[in-house]
Every structure is written in C-alpha cells, then in structure tokens.
Computed example of a mutant assay.
Amino acid sequence: MSHPLHDVLTRWKDAFDHHRPDVMAELFTPDALFQGFGPVPTVGRESVRSYYAAVAPDRRADVTVLHTYALGESVAGGFADVTFSDPAGWEAKVHLSLVLRRDENDWKIRQYHVSRTAPED
C-alpha cells in the first residue's frame, strides 16, 4: 500500500494541471490552513478555490515527493519539491509541506505550505 501523500499529490497535480479549482478545493478539509505564494495564510476550501481560480490556466506542476510520515491511522504528511511552469518559460521552484487527515475513507489536506527555493525571475 502506498503512502496517502502520493495519492493526494497525484490528484492535486491532475486538478492543478487541468485548471480545476473546484476539484482542488475538494482535496482540502473544510478548515484547511493554506499558505500559497501570497503573504497571508488563509483558511477553508473557499479560499483555496479562489486561490487556484486566479492561477493562469496554462500553468503546470512537476512534483517529486521527498519524505513521508504517518502519525497513527488518521494523520499523515510529508514534503515535496514542486516546479510550477508555463509554456512561456516562467518557472517557480518550491518546497511543499502537507499535513493530511483521513476523513472517513478519504485523505484530505489539512495544512498546505509552500516556500520558494529560488527567487522569481
């Protein structure tokens, strides 16, 4: 059985690459803490949906899982390197950390935080 982080990030990447902000929001818990590129952390699915709706639809994400962990049967998480890019050559490399919580039989993102690894060009 693979770690839940792999499954969640596979679904996250698919929704991101196909610019589906509603699907993205459903990957998060209703009370998720979210820190994207913006300077202020936000809370909740609606803020996640709004954030991803504002992302250019031609952007893609390349994800490499670096580390996973589990705390009991209902909490897991880990770290990944993500490179966001677009066809014009824009690129942003980040570290992504996630905390996941199992809600019934599905894993959801409870906490999401990115930090840039290099300045934006």
Rank of each mutant, 00 (worst) to 15 (best):
F79P: 01
F79M: 13
F79K: 14
F79R: 12
F79Q: 11
F79G: 07
F79H: 11
A80E: 01
A80M: 08
A80V: 01
A80S: 15
A80R: 08
A80H: 03
D81Q: 13
D81G: 06
V82W: 04
V82C: 09
V82N: 06
V82Y: 02
T83L: 15
T83F: 03
T83I: 14
T83Y: 00
T83R: 15
T83G: 04
T83D: 13
T83Q: 11
F84S: 05
F84Q: 03
F84R: 03
F84E: 08
F84I: 09
F84P: 00
F84G: 03
S85P: 05
S85W: 01
S85G: 11
S85E: 04
S85K: 00
S85L: 02
S85D: 05
D86H: 00
D86P: 01
D86F: 02
D86Q: 01
D86V: 02
P87E: 00
P87R: 01
P87T: 00
A88M: 02
A88L: 05
A88G: 02
G89N: 05
G89V: 06
G89W: 06
G89I: 08
W90Y: 14
W90F: 12
W90M: 03
W90R: 02
W90A: 10
E91G: 07
E91D: 08
E91A: 15
E91W: 00
E91L: 09
E91T: 14
E91Q: 15
E91R: 15
E91P: 00
E91M: 09
A92N: 12
A92I: 09
A92M: 11
A92K: 09
A92E: 09
A92T: 10
A92W: 05
K93G: 11
K93I: 07
K93C: 07
V94Y: 00
V94D: 04
V94F: 01
L96F: 05
L96P: 02
L96Q: 12
L96M: 12
S97I: 03
S97Q: 14
S97A: 10
S97K: 02
L98W: 06
L98Q: 11
L98E: 14
L98T: 11
L98R: 06
L98H: 08
V99W: 09
V99A: 14
V99N: 12
V99F: 10
L100H: 06
L100E: 07
R101Y: 10
R101F: 06
R102Q: 14
R102A: 10
R102L: 13
R102H: 08
R102F: 10
R102C: 13
R102K: 15
D103V: 15
D103I: 14
D103L: 12
D103M: 09
D103W: 03
D103G: 01
E104G: 01
E104I: 08
E104P: 00
E104C: 07
N105D: 15
N105C: 01
N105Q: 13
N105G: 08
N105M: 04
D106V: 13
D106G: 00
D106I: 06
W107L: 07
W107Y: 05
W107C: 11
W107K: 03
K108L: 15
K108V: 02
K108G: 00
K108Y: 03
I109S: 13
I109Y: 09
I109D: 13
I109L: 11
I109V: 15
R110W: 11
R110N: 05
R110A: 15
R110K: 09
R110L: 14
Q111P: 01
